[in-house]
Simulated assay, not measured.
Amino acid sequence: MRLSFAVALATVLVAGCSVDTAGPVRAAERFHAALAAQRPDAACALLAKRTADKLPHPGQNCAEALRDLDLGAGGGLTEVRVWGDEAQVRLAGDTLFLHHYRDGWRVKAAGCRPVRDLPYDCEVES
């Protein structure tokens, strides 16, 4: 799957501005902590609705679908980029894309790896 975010937009780093990076970082870390604790239902609760709805194959629920994927180990934070209501969080073992909704930051894509000269290839995306 190819993530449809524009590569140029993903390269915009908001620096020197008062930007909340803690929210997307917390959401990304909570997502991977839930996976590491083998709590895929909790991880599904952190997904954007459209992402959670798209994830399962027929006959599966979100938690079963997440168990079947290799989403990386998460790991320590390496970089955060925020532009408006969109964010990219890079952990040592994964790159996630998030969106800020009224109820907080939600994961729109996870298990993302850069593809040379192309958008990211993601295991989970909306």
Score class of each variant (00 low, 15 high):
Asp103Arg: 12
Val12Leu: 14
Leu96Gly: 08
Ala27Gln: 05
Val12Arg: 04
Met1Pro: 02
Val89Glu: 06
Ala42Met: 05
Arg81Cys: 08
Arg113Pro: 06
Arg50Thr: 12
Arg81Asn: 00
Ala36Gln: 01
Arg90Asn: 09
Leu91Thr: 05
Leu9Met: 13
Arg102Lys: 15
Leu96His: 06
Ala43His: 02
Gln38Lys: 00
Lys108Tyr: 15
Leu35His: 03
Ala63Glu: 02
Arg116Met: 14
Val107Gln: 04
Thr78Lys: 10
Glu79Ala: 13
Glu125Asn: 07
Arg30Gln: 14
Thr11Phe: 14
Trp83His: 08
Asp53Ile: 02
Leu46Gln: 05
Gly74Leu: 08
Gly84Pro: 03
Ala33Trp: 09
His57Val: 12
Leu98His: 03
Trp105Arg: 02
Thr78Gly: 07
Cys112Tyr: 07
Ala42Val: 09
His32Trp: 07
Thr51Ala: 11
Arg90Glu: 14
Leu9Ser: 12
Leu47Arg: 01
Leu47Gln: 00
Gly93Ile: 04
Cys62Phe: 04
Pro58Met: 09
Ala42Pro: 06
Ala33Tyr: 10
Ala22His: 05
Arg39Lys: 02
Ala48Pro: 00
Leu3Met: 14
Ala52Thr: 09
Gly111Tyr: 10
Lys49Met: 05
Gly75Leu: 12
Arg2Tyr: 15
Val89Gly: 01
Thr21Met: 10
Leu98Phe: 09
Arg30Trp: 08
Ala36Arg: 07
Cys122Phe: 11
Asp68Ala: 13
Ala22Ile: 07
Ala48Asn: 10
Leu47Phe: 06
Arg2Trp: 15
Lys49Gly: 08
Asp70Cys: 00
Arg90Ser: 11
Ala109Gly: 07
Ala36Asp: 05
Lys49Gln: 10
Leu77Lys: 02
Leu91Met: 02
Ala10Ile: 15
Ala63His: 08
Gly104Val: 12
Leu9Lys: 12
Thr78Tyr: 09
Gly75Ala: 11
Val14Leu: 12
Val82Leu: 06
Leu69Pro: 03
Ala34Arg: 01
Val89Trp: 08
Gln60Glu: 08
Ala63Thr: 00
Arg106Ile: 04
Cys112Trp: 08
Ala63Ser: 01
His100Gly: 10
Cys112Pro: 00
Val124Phe: 07
Pro40Asp: 02
Met1Ile: 11
Asp103Ser: 11
Asp117Thr: 11
Asp117Ala: 13
Leu71Tyr: 06
Lys54Phe: 13
Ala42Gly: 04
Cys62Pro: 00
Leu46Thr: 04
Ala34Tyr: 06
Thr95Val: 14
Ser126Ile: 11
Trp105Met: 01
Cys122Lys: 03
Trp83Arg: 14
Val80Ser: 01
Gly93Ala: 03
Ala48His: 09
Arg116His: 11
Trp105Phe: 07
Gly75Tyr: 09
Asp85Arg: 13
Cys17Ile: 09
Gly72Glu: 08
Asp41Gln: 09
Gly74Lys: 00
Leu91His: 04
Ala22Tyr: 07
His100Cys: 12
Ala73Asn: 05
Ala92Cys: 01
Tyr120Pro: 02
Glu29Val: 06
Gly16Pro: 10
Arg102Cys: 05
Ala10Tyr: 09
Pro24Ala: 13
Leu13Glu: 08
Trp83Phe: 13
Arg26Gly: 06
Gly72Trp: 08
Glu123Leu: 10
Arg90Asp: 14
Met1Thr: 13
Leu35Gly: 01
Leu3Thr: 03
Val14Trp: 12
